[in-house]
Design a protein around this nucleic acid. Structure first.
Lengths: 230, 230
DNA sequence: TCAAGAATGTTGGCATACCAAATACCAGGT
DNA sequence: ACCTGGTATTTGGTATGCCAACATTCTTGA
């Protein structure tokens, strides 16, 4: 017999359910495809999906039900399941909601985060605060998203984290695109620096305002230049 | 033959799916029961539910899947489906997220709503702005919620509306309870009046701040006095 | 007497079968 | 060629059956 002190099993065995596996597979497929490159809405065939995934229709349908709830697909009775193409207005609305939540997270971070955590913000994204970010836009776009997620994480509000996590799935691609329009990247960095300063100073009112305005700036940009979405 | 001009059929039949009906029934049952009055978590039996609802297990399961996604129930493999009891901290988090979103809605309302719409706010809730609200707490609690929903509606942001709609399902009961603790009702009304004034003046910054602080006040209150939740 | 384990029942996960509605296809008439 | 109506096929919605994992009860042996 092995002593329980030394015998540490892996965190969780928890063989995922087929439903969860189907969900992951479908979600990845949906987010990876560029929905907006094609004009027609994509239709998903339950039977083909279950055939390709090697499981029956039941877990596939349940996974699709979750995706419907998250706004990725839409069921039409006896017509099919369609991948949803968000309209420009819907994207703008999502960014506005995101801004509200991240703004609140920033406020909460001022109260709750440790000095170390706040300092990490600056340390984790140093490379982009010198030189021209326009040279590494792909990298910067990812770092940009991480930056905002980090702020939300520091807010230590799970509800905000969960909701924004879902919103991000929908707007990730748009963020990347918008960054390349105009000279938004350089400006974005300046605003980030201000946000970090406000957080480090624990100036909740300022941090909250800066984060909100930063987000709403993106919303306005998409509103103006996001016609490719419709 | 009938001339197509004169032969007008009724718009649609649109019979809801059994899944939707099961969802509605379950959601109402869950929100109506007072989850926090009993110590044990409530377990739902798929087979009994489908028997009671008069449909098979399939639509019931799909309805439960949606409810799981919305945070009302939790699946445990081969154990059962349980109605989730939110912890105090989760409730506080939801109220904070709500505050962020309503605050943004107020800001948007300042830009988007018509004078009429803003004025309706005052007209729709006049009876409570004179006399003591503590005499009609049930009425006032409902009006209170309608007031906040109205602000969100005036923001004309569907995403915010949808998210808060779900949050409301979870905190409805708590709002009602909190209103009865201390002299919160009277104070609540004063703050509402200020919010209306800010909106009518289209002072976005002020309205946004007042709505946020009003919401966070509730969060703090629950944080302090909501121990009955755990 | 009581603990260990075997038998039985229960539960959610999954697969499959069937149905009605929507669509696609085709034959026959104009 | 172009309708027209009916028929076959496809599709999502639903019902049902089976299974492994858990829970419970009963049995058994010291």
């Amino acid at each position: 017999m092995v002593k329980s002190d030394t015998f540490q099993v892996k965190p969780i065995a928890a063989t995922s359910s087929l439903r969860a596996l189907a969900y992951d597979a479908l979600k990845e497929a949906i987010t990876n495809m560029n929905i907006y490159s094609q004009r027609e809405e994509v239709r998903l065939d339950e039977r083909k999906l279950s055939l390709n995934l090697g499981v029956s229709r039941t877990p596939v349908r349940e996974a699709l039900t979750v995706l419907e709830q998250e706004g990725f697909v839409r069921f039409e009775a006896r017509r099919g399941v369609f991948v949803i193409k968000k309209t420009k207005q819907e994207i703008v609305s999502m960014i506005q909601a995101w801004s509200a939540l991240e703004s609140m997270a920033a406020r909460l971070a001022c109260e709750r985060a440790t000095d170390e955590q706040l300092h990490c913000l600056r340390e984790h994204f140093p490379e982009f605060y010198e030189g021209r970010p326009s040279d590494h836009l792909d990298e910067y776009s990812e770092a940009n998203i991480r930056f905002h997620q980090k702020i939300i994480s520091l807010g230590q509000c799970d509800v905000i984290k969960d909701i924004t996590s879902n919103l991000l799935m929908h707007v990730r691609g748009i963020r990347n695109t918008a960054l390349r329009q105009g000279d938004r990247a350089a400006n974005s960095i300046k605003e980030h620096v201000q946000i970090i300063k406000a957080l480090e100073a624990r100036d909740a009112l300022l941090a909250e305002r800066l984060v909100r305005d930063h987000g709403l700036g993106l919303a306005s940009h998409v509103e103006k230049y996001g016609d490719y979405l419709d």
